[in-house]
Write a protein that binds this DNA or RNA. Sequence first.
DNA 1: TAACCTGTATGAGTACAGTCATACAGGTTT
DNA 2: AAACCTGTATGACTGTACTCATACAGGTTA
Lengths: 128, 128
Amino acid sequence: MLDTLHIEANGIPIYIQIRDQILAAVAAGALKPGDRLPTMREVAVALKVDLNTVRHAYDSAQESGAIVLVRAQGTYVAERPPDVSEDRLEKLAQSIAVNAYSQGVNLRDLIDRLNQIAAGQRAGGGTS
Amino acid sequence: MLDTLHIEANGIPIYIQIRDQILAAVAAGALKPGDRLPTMREVAVALKVDLNTVRHAYDSAQESGAIVLVRAQGTYVAERPPDVSEDRLEKLAQSIAVNAYSQGVNLRDLIDRLNQIAAGQRAGGGTS
DNA sequence: TAACCTGTATGAGTACAGTCATACAGGTTT
DNA sequence: AAACCTGTATGACTGTACTCATACAGGTTA
């Protein structure tokens, strides 16, 4: 795990990058239930970032239920981690729905557009 | 237009609220091409916000091509305003696609979820 | 041209997210 | 119990988004 971690200098917050890599590892099965994650300090040193930044990442990953922080012991992959990608999917979908609504964008129209993008197409025309 | 403008104390930035109401009015046809919008000052006074905040809103609306700011004269609905809702739809869809990709979320899965939400349903099951 | 209307520009103040240095506290191991 | 490992907590710094007060500049109209 430790050796696969990496951060980039794109605009994405460090703690998000770390968290996502953890979640991805869990989702991919590279980390299995009960596995111990590297300590926050190890990650902090390896990535040359602050301990609290790593903590932020771990906290965020814990909120999703994927890992469990145990004081004085370490951090472990949850015994029954939720389907991580499913979880992210749900959150994303919810936020999208809310966002679309608040912008007055019709959800079904949005879905149509997304379908086009997923199909690698671009539709020509405005209907209005 | 002026009398329909309003702002709420939800977390949404004031300039976003104003901009969205302008775009909505244009999209709905309440404001037609060539129509003159209330001056920034009028809006500022009516909503009791700063002139620059209104300017921010107008600027943002102009960027989308819906309106045109004319120095010393006023602000007008563009002669050929883009399909505003279509435009927002497009931007939303693009950002969603990018976002999903960076999170490793499969776009088609996301679309499925959105379809469920649009249908007012909630799917049952964790597969894990 | 002078007064008055428009949008434009500059600088300051506030709030918040992200990151960091440093210190605290709870289990393990000797 | 002492040393050492873990995660936890507190406070400060920085950058950025948002809002505001105030001043500037370009057309219109009397």
